[in-house]
């Protein structure tokens, strides 16, 4: 059973509610602070010129996602897609506003997390799986299925440091998508792998999407959005520019992007 929210029985309909969500991302020295300032601060010293530097990553986002919705977050680089996704996952703390999530969350934000380069692909099924909060016993039960899906053949028993980027992604994707959560948050996982595998990956994602109560995908790939999602939220500089059916938002987005 995936991690995090396993203790609770069946209950309210799945939903994500984002209300007046503001997220300020500290950058530079202020993110860490200076040791001198911290020590001097103990004695009442205050910096004459405050060096606070923030990026307003999300500026008052309001969003409601209901059970059964497949939502794409689109926008150019730095628009706040990934940040909003991570805020929904509870990874990033908010400066103000509220996020309420009803449902067991699964994330696909970084595929390689939990991998050990010196270990074999088969061993890494366990390492990555445990990094996602699954037990060794559960992973043993699914090992064969994962190996079959990634299609690495004998390479599965070689160290992953010998893998190409595509093989790496295939294995990571196979493990990460083996179990379906109730709320699935995905950040650009189709960036690598060959065409055949990409098609299989999309098929699997469709299956997961259908199993998951809520699916949110942050991506630049408008073709994928048209195929997988029913609703698109267009973000720009931390604001929502448009929110509606894919058929309405994507043409507008594409037109704007090509006109830039």
């Amino acid at each position: 059973m995936p991690a995090g929210h396993a203790l609770v029985g069946r209950r309210a309909p799945l939903a994500i509610q984002v209300k007046d969500c503001v997220l300020k991302y500290p950058i530079g020295a202020h993110a860490r602070g200076s040791l001198k300032s911290a020590v001097m601060g103990l004695f009442g010293h205050r910096e004459r010129t405050p060096t606070a530097q923030y990026v307003d990553a999300l500026r008052g986002i309001n969003l409601q996602i209901q059970q059964g919705e497949r939502v794409a977050l689109i926008g150019h680089n730095g628009s706040g897609k990934s940040t909003l996704l991570r805020a929904m996952a509870g990874v990033y703390p908010l400066a103000s506003g509220d996020i309420h999530v009803s449902g067991r969350i699964g994330t696909l934000l970084e595929l390689g997390v939990g991998f050990e380069d010196e270990a074999t692909g088969r061993e890494n099924i366990y390492y990555r799986g445990m990094a996602m909060g699954y037990s060794r016993k559960l992973l043993a039960k699914h090992e064969r299925e994962i190996v079959e899906f990634c299609g690495l053949g004998d390479f599965i028993d070689l160290p992953v440091r010998t893998y190409s980027a595509g093989m790496y992604v295939r294995l990571a994707f196979a493990i990460s998508t083996q179990f379906s959560p109730e709320v699935l948050l995905v950040d650009e996982v189709f960036g690598a792998g060959d065409a055949v595998f990409a098609e299989r990956a999309v098929q699997r994602m469709m299956r997961i999407v259908n199993d998951a109560g809520i699916f949110v995908l942050a991506t630049h790939d408008v073709n994928l959005v048209s195929r997988v999602c029913s609703r698109a939220v267009w973000l720009s500089s931390g604001h929502i520019l448009a929110d509606g059916p894919v058929e309405t938002v994507i043409p507008e987005f594409t037109a704007r992007m090509s006109g830039r």
Binding site: A3, A6, P93, G97, D98, V101
Partner: peptide, 29 residues
């Protein structure tokens, strides 16, 4: 400001934290 998983809200913070911690024990090992 808050982040709440509605299903967990009925548990006190300490229990919620303990439950989260236990669910990731495999990761720790």
């Amino acid at each position: 400001m808050s982040y709440v998983n509605v299903q967990d809200r009925r548990l006190p913070f300490a229990l919620r934290y303990a439950a989260d911690f236990l669910s990731y024990r495999h990761l720790c090992w």
